[in-house]
Design a binder for these strands. Sequence first.
DNA 1: CACTAACGGTACGATAGCGTTTCGATGGAG
DNA 2: CTCCATCGAAACGCTATCGTACCGTTAGTG
Lengths: 191, 191
Amino acid sequence: MVSRGDGARQRMLTAALDVLDDAGLAGFTMEAVARRAGASKATLYRRWPTTGALLVDAMDATYRPFPTPDTGSVTKDVTEILTAFVTLLERTPFPRLLAAFIDAAERDPALSELHTDLTNRRREPLLTVLQRGRDRGELAPDTDPELTTDLLTSPFFYRHFVAHRPIPRRMIPDVITRVLNPCRVRGLTDC
Amino acid sequence: MVSRGDGARQRMLTAALDVLDDAGLAGFTMEAVARRAGASKATLYRRWPTTGALLVDAMDATYRPFPTPDTGSVTKDVTEILTAFVTLLERTPFPRLLAAFIDAAERDPALSELHTDLTNRRREPLLTVLQRGRDRGELAPDTDPELTTDLLTSPFFYRHFVAHRPIPRRMIPDVITRVLNPCRVRGLTDC
DNA sequence: CACTAACGGTACGATAGCGTTTCGATGGAG
DNA sequence: CTCCATCGAAACGCTATCGTACCGTTAGTG
């Protein structure tokens, strides 16, 4: 029925992400978002009672599912996912949004919950690929997909947000080799 | 010569960290820090022209060197360091400070540089332990201490800041086993 | 003990965001 | 084409922080 509001809603969410991107959490105000969206503060408050609620919806809108490749080789599948992930980390506004969001999530339980939820959704493709590899017998039966997912993705987060150093392309195969080889069943590995 | 100022400086840096801890970067203002320190804004501005400069000094003051154990066993040394690290992550204000700092570092080059510097200093004990293990022949000669340090520490950062889940105690030996075993020279490992 | 630099407290005008209200314009549904 | 919910714009009083200035006090120096 109402279709006028939908466009406005999208414009505001986009504006919210823009503001968060280049002003950080400190500059994330209703006024700034309204200004950027070319919208009225009243319209903004009509939908979101607090900046926290707006931030939740805005971040939720950023989620785009990763592809879940199925080439038949765990190494190839994981390489594909990690490559897409590193691209996201180095060539999009995503990490700056995430940085602001991590800070906010440390203090607001609602944001913390959403953050957990978004992260879990983002982990799924890698989990699926690892489970398939285990079912196929390519990985050892006692492989823990959860821990392995942590080990595979966390170094790239760390490099970007903590160590603050660039991510060389060959870091991807290096990490995969170091993390995945001990999981391989004998005969398929050079471990 | 001047000894009155030193105490005041420390009080202000401590207050700055307190404010950052429970108000985040958004609440990190000169007024708030002065209030918390029981100091005058004028005194604050006398030493630090901007909140950024104050933040740099305050974060720099948080650095406490980790012990660098030398038990003769790489596993024991690494376990000790990672245990201390997880404690820091779960039982101190450190992670909330770091979260605010990560956000700030995404936008301020000076903070980014300091962040890199602090991180490098914090990495040193683990690097030293790994290098000693390699020199002793306990780890393979082609072991890359830098990458190994990334692999050992990053999962815990990830768990806390991104996945937002608790860190079970046995995650420490699990990570060590998965990361370190492939590096061991044949005959010393059950890989 | 007297001096002086540094300090805490306070007030200042200026700016910015808050959350709310009013009002006139607009565009989609019937 | 008409109607009315939704919208943008603007103004409201309020509060907080900014950066600076002044003044009386205090704690180390010589």
